[in-house]
Design a protein around this nucleic acid. Structure first.
Lengths: 159, 159
DNA sequence: ATCCATATGGTCAAAATACGTCAAGAAACG
DNA sequence: CGTTTCTTGACGTATTTTGACCATATGGAT
């Protein structure tokens, strides 16, 4: 049940909590040694867990005194937040991706479990009627799902 | 009278009771082996029994260290309230009636403003697509709205 | 100033692992 | 006896882990 990637992710999150900062710096090699893995494993963790989609940006520098800096994304206003979230949803989104996004939003505290449940119910129903009474193509279904999802998210941000 | 699906469903419910947690993790392959069935049978059980409409959310991850996580959002036994609310929604509900009902639920503290917003956004979108791409009759639109509303309410108002 | 040794981090792809989708046929139901 | 629900299996996709090889920054030597 535990995995290297998840362990490293947890460790980095702990560092964030301890630091109480919106950004922190790491040494790739050091971190890899701490977890007894190859350095590129760290890149994998960053690429899969500390993405803009999950609210993070990563910068790095090579060479002597190299570093990896992870930053939490901050928004100046609701509009920025909305456009960020709109981008995450995109023009079309499938069931799996939608669920993943909702998971991430819940983890970020932007959504309560009940709100997430409401969203999932409505997405499912939309998908269902698109299939059965109407016969919408898979891609069009994803476009419609994306539209509904974006509207709900926009509403929540402004609420 | 017993069936594979029901057996697996019962088993998962037992796990919830034992764990006394609102969420639990499974391995699809393991579970399939325990019940001597193909792994996709597990997907069927999840898709038909642990839906958001029934108060559950399911997350999963593929690949190494993959898992299936089931979360119980719904609060225990509130069947009476479900049927009561179903009656309130009825077979078909128009925009005006729907709004009245939501107002009442919100006033009774069964719904937060954000949750209500989500419901209204999705109902409005449903209505919109029923008119424009598809050309659903007014009555049918009301039926579909009622159905979506009922599903959302069933999913979460229970406590 | 330039070169180069050293110290970092980056990319990519293969292999292993685990879950998802879909549709056809069987079974149960009313 | 038609409809819904269940079961199965073939095929598809996603994630993790590792390692070989690539790119870049720094600082001291020339």
């Amino acid at each position: 049940m535990s995995s290297l990637t998840r362990d490293i992710e947890s460790y980095i999150r702990e560092l964030f909590e301890e630091a109480q900062e919106h950004q922190l710096s790491l040494r790739r090699k050091e971190l890899a040694e701490r977890f007894g893995c190859v350095p590129s494993q760290i890149n994998y963790v960053l690429a899969s867990r500390f993405t803009p989609e999950r609210g993070y940006l990563v910068e790095s520098q090579r060479g002597g005194h190299g570093y990896i800096r992870i930053m939490k994304i901050r928004f100046a206003n609701a509009e920025e937040r909305i456009s960020h979230l709109d981008d995450l949803v995109g023009n079309a989104i499938g069931e799996q991706d939608a669920r993943r996004l909702l998971t991430s939003l819940q983890e970020r505290g932007l959504l309560t479990p009940r709100e997430r449940l409401l969203i999932e119910v409505s997405l499912r129903y939309l998908d269902e009627i698109c299939r059965t009474p109407f016969d919408v193509s898979p891609y069009k279904r994803d476009v419609m799902q994306a539209e509904l999802l974006k509207r709900m998210i926009r509403g929540l941000v402004l609420a």
